[in-house]
Write a protein that binds this DNA or RNA. Sequence first.
DNA 1: TGTTAACACGAAACCGTTTTCGTGATTTTT
DNA 2: AAAAATCACGAAAACGGTTTCGTGTTAACA
Lengths: 340, 340
Amino acid sequence: MKQKITIKTIAKELGVSTSTVSKALKDSHEISKETKDKIQAYANLYNYKPNSLALQLRNQKTKVIGVILPKIVHHFFSTVIMGIEEGAIEKGYHIMVCFSNESYAKEVETLKVLSNGSVDGLIVSIANETLKNKDFKHFTDLVSEEIPLVLFDRVVDDILCDKVVVDDVGAGYKATKHLLDNGRKRIALITTPKHVNVGTLRRQGYEKALIEEYIKTDKNLIVEIDENSDVRKQIEFVFNQEIDGVFAVNEIYAANAMRIAKEKGLNVPKDFSVIGFTDGLISEYSSPSITTIAQHGFTMGKQAVELLIERIEKETEVYSPKKIVISSNLKLRESTKPSS
Amino acid sequence: MKQKITIKTIAKELGVSTSTVSKALKDSHEISKETKDKIQAYANLYNYKPNSLALQLRNQKTKVIGVILPKIVHHFFSTVIMGIEEGAIEKGYHIMVCFSNESYAKEVETLKVLSNGSVDGLIVSIANETLKNKDFKHFTDLVSEEIPLVLFDRVVDDILCDKVVVDDVGAGYKATKHLLDNGRKRIALITTPKHVNVGTLRRQGYEKALIEEYIKTDKNLIVEIDENSDVRKQIEFVFNQEIDGVFAVNEIYAANAMRIAKEKGLNVPKDFSVIGFTDGLISEYSSPSITTIAQHGFTMGKQAVELLIERIEKETEVYSPKKIVISSNLKLRESTKPSS
DNA sequence: TGTTAACACGAAACCGTTTTCGTGATTTTT
DNA sequence: AAAAATCACGAAAACGGTTTCGTGTTAACA
C-alpha cells in the first residue's frame, strides 16, 4: 500500500509541530488563521485522513460492534443484520460480522478474538451446539470482564446481560389458536430438539392453545427435527398419523410439510392448513403462500444494537440487565384460508 | 468496561520492565526461565490478552477486510458473505460488513470511512445507483491510494482492480438454449435496467442463443424491471404477448412470472417453462420448483477473498489486475421438465 | 514604563505493544 | 589474571494521533 500521509508528514513539510497540525485540523482557536489555512489546504490537497487505529488506541474505543451469528444464509438472521447495521451506522458505529456456523468451538474462538479490544461490545445469537452443551463459560467470562453484550433470539437466562427476544410462547399460541379457529383438530407440531429454547417456548404456546380447547397433546403429532439427518423423512413421519394441520417452527419445515401434504393428495388449505415461523421469501412465494408468524428481525436487530450502544456509552456502574420482548404477529396467507 | 490488564500493569506489579514482559510472553531466549515462568503465570492468572489495537497500530495492518454489499437479505449476497468469511478466517482475517443499500451516497461514505486504516483491503459489489450514475471516482481514488480492492458480481471495467464475476453471457446463453431445447419458441426475458451490467450481459447470452436458432429477438418480449414501481405489474405486461417460456435474471422475477403464468391458467411446465437465476430457496421450494442458473456465490466469495489477501500480502510493486470468471451451471428442476 | 493578559505555538506525555540496541554482571576462554 | 563472550534485562524509539501544560512574543492596561 502507498505511504499514507500523516500529521507528522504535514508538520515536517510545513515546518510546524504535530500539535499545531492536530489543532489546526480541528479548527482550534489556539492557532492563527493563516497557519490554519495553510495546514488545512495542505491536508486537503494531499487528502489527509486521520488514522483510525491511532484514534482508537488513544480513545480506548473502536466504535465497532462485533456480531456473531449462527448462520447468515437465512432470512431471519440476515434481516436482523440489516437492523443491527442500520442502528449502528446511525450512532456512528460499524459492525464486524462473524459466524459460528452453529459450532461451539468456533463460537468460543470468535468470542475470544473479538474481546481483545477490537470491538466495544458484542451482539450474539447462540450456536445450536452451545445450547446443547450448555457450556456458557465463554459468555459468563465476557460478562465478568464487563464487556457489553447483548444476546438475541437464542438466549439463555444464566448469562447476565441484555437480551432481545420474540414472544415465542405467545407466538406459538397465536399460531396454534389460529389453526384451531379454522376448525383444525389434529395439529402436528414440527419443532427443534429441546435444547433449542426457542423451539421449546413455541411448543409451550402450542400446548397452551390446545389445552384451552381441552385437547390433549398427542406425542405422536410432535416431531423434533434433527438437522443432521434427512429433514424431509422426519417430517413425513408425522403424516403417518391422521392430521389436518401443521405448525412448523420455521419456514423450511413449513414448506416441506406443505409439499408433502400436497403430494399425499391433501388440498391446502381446504383439507389441510399450514403455518410457519419466520416471514421469509419461501412463505411468500410458495403456492399456496404460507401463513407465518412474522418475527420482526429488523426490529430485533435495531433494538439490540440500541441497547448495546446505550450500555457502551453509559458509564453508570450499577447496571441491571434488560430483556426486551418483541411481540410477533400472524401474517395471514393462503395456506390457512378458512376451510368453508 | 473493566480496567484491562496490560503489559505495563504486569511490569509494574512484578518489578520488571515492559520489554521484559513482552519478551517473556513470547518465550524469548533473552529472558531467564524463572522470570519467564513468573511472568507467564501472572499473565495467565489475570487472563492477559494483548490489545489488538496496539498491535494493529504497530504492525500497520489490521487483519480486517472490509466488505460492502448492496444488500444482505438476498440469497446470493448472503452466500457470498459466507464464502468471504470462511476464506478470511482460514487466513487469520476478520470481516467488517457494511451495506450500501443500493445507494450511491452511502457507498461513497462507507468507502471513505473504511479506507482510513481500519481495514487492510476491501471487497465490494457496486450499488445500483452508482452503476446508474456511472460515477466511480470513489473507487478510482481507492485504487490510486493503492488500497487493495476486489470487485465482484457487479463490477465495472474502468476500475483497475481484481474482479470476480460469473460468466453472465454464458449463463444467459445456457438458460435460453435450455428453453429452446425444450421446444419453446417465444421466450420472454425479464431483466434489469441496462445500467445493471449483469442484466445486460445475461441479455447478450439470451440474444445469442436466439440468433443461433434464427429467431429474431422481439423487443416486446423483453421487460426491464424498475424496482421502484410495482414489479408484478411490469412482469404481467409481458404476458400480454403470446409466450411459452420465460427467462428471468433473478429468482424473485422468476417466482413472480411463474405465479402469473399459473394464474393465467398456464400449466408449468407442460404449457410454459420458467427458468431463473440465483439458486435460492424460493426456486427450491416453490411449486413446481424452478430451474435456475446456480451462481456459486460461496465460491465467488472465497475466490474474492483469496485474491484480496494475496494482493495484501504480496509486496510486489508491479501488479496487473486479475479477473476470475466463475462458470455457472444449470440446476434442472420441475419448471422446465421437457414438454412431452 | 512596568505589569499583565492574550496570542500562537511547541514539548512532552499518553494509549499498548514490539524491537533494537545498550549495559552491567557473570562466565568462559586464553 | 586479563580479555572475550554470554546472559538477563532495561531504555528508548516507533506506530499516529490528542491534549495538557508550558513559554516566548506581542498587545493592552495602569
